[in-house]
């Protein structure tokens, strides 16, 4: 049974639906990458999973139940975590407090998880007393990911984690994502650096106008001439 499965999801922001039947299935061991043109509904898909907009059709199965339209404070304890595309850190709070906020739903001792996050991102340990707003773009992205990992998710969703980063940081972030996946966290991410991301993706989804166009392994999609022509820039 897949970790999460979206079947014919339809939804939007109140007006005409933006998603017109999206299908996605991810295993625990998978790194799923969603690619597609601007405005295709990639971010909207992640938000729909996370209960941030109204799902009017289809089902979202996670952990054996339909979680469509559940709110984040119910989803986070179930093992779902989300890093939004922008404004994804609490700028006025210290790095450590940002991480603590990620663990808000946990009632147990989370110091070992914090240790785990600091091992993954050693810079954050150095800067843990500094306000997150004073960090560089790449470091902020690490704080955002660290915050999302603090709830010990089984599925981590990331919206364009490499946006606005220099090539060196892009590689670093992608490596971290793969490491997190190896530690047993399923990944579902949206990426603009499509080629690079699909290269390590075990599942790839090409979305356009709120619908799946192509689905396959990352390697298959890169190899598909039609995908390459229309969505990966030749």
């Amino acid at each position: 049974m897949p970790l999460i499965e979206l079947k014919h999801v339809v939804g939007g922001y109140g007006g005409a639906p933006i998603l017109n039947g999206v299908n996605i299935a991810i295993e625990k061991t998978d790194i799923g990458v969603i690619v597609g043109p601007n405005g295709a509904g990639k971010s909207t898909t992640l938000k729909a999973i996370f209960g941030l907009l109204k799902v009017t059709g289809g089902t979202i199965d996670f952990g054996g139940e339909n979680i469509a339209n559940s709110l984040p404070d119910k989803l986070v304890p179930k093992g779902l975590s989300f890093v939004p595309q922008e404004k994804n850190v609490f700028t006025s709070m210290s790095v450590e407090e940002n991480l603590e906020m990620g663990a808000f739903t946990r009632t147990d001792d989370f110091s070992s998880t914090m240790e785990w996050v600091y091992e993954m991102f050693p810079v954050l340990r150095e800067k843990r007393r500094q306000p997150a707003g004073e960090l560089s773009g790449g470091q902020r992205q690490m704080v955002a990911m660290g915050r999302a990992l603090m709830s010990k998710p089984t599925l981590l969703m990331l919206d364009e984690p490499s946006a606005g980063l220099s090539p060196r940081y892009v590689i670093e972030i992608f490596e971290t994502i793969q490491r997190v996946n190896k530690e047993g966290v399923g990944i579902l991410m949206v990426e603009q650096n499509a080629r690079q991301a699909l290269a390590f993706a075990s599942k790839g989804f090409v979305l356009a106008s709120g619908q799946n166009r192509f689905t396959g392994t990352g390697a298959e999609l890169i190899a598909d001439p039609e995908v390459a022509k229309s969505f990966l820039g030749g």
């Binding site: 304890p77 939004p84 404004k87 609490f90 906020m101 808000f104 739903t105």
Partner: peptide, 11 residues
């Protein structure tokens, strides 16, 4: 600081 992110964090 950021109400949307607070919600996303499960607060």
């Amino acid at each position: 600081d950021n109400a949307d992110l607070a919600q996303v964090s499960g607060i």
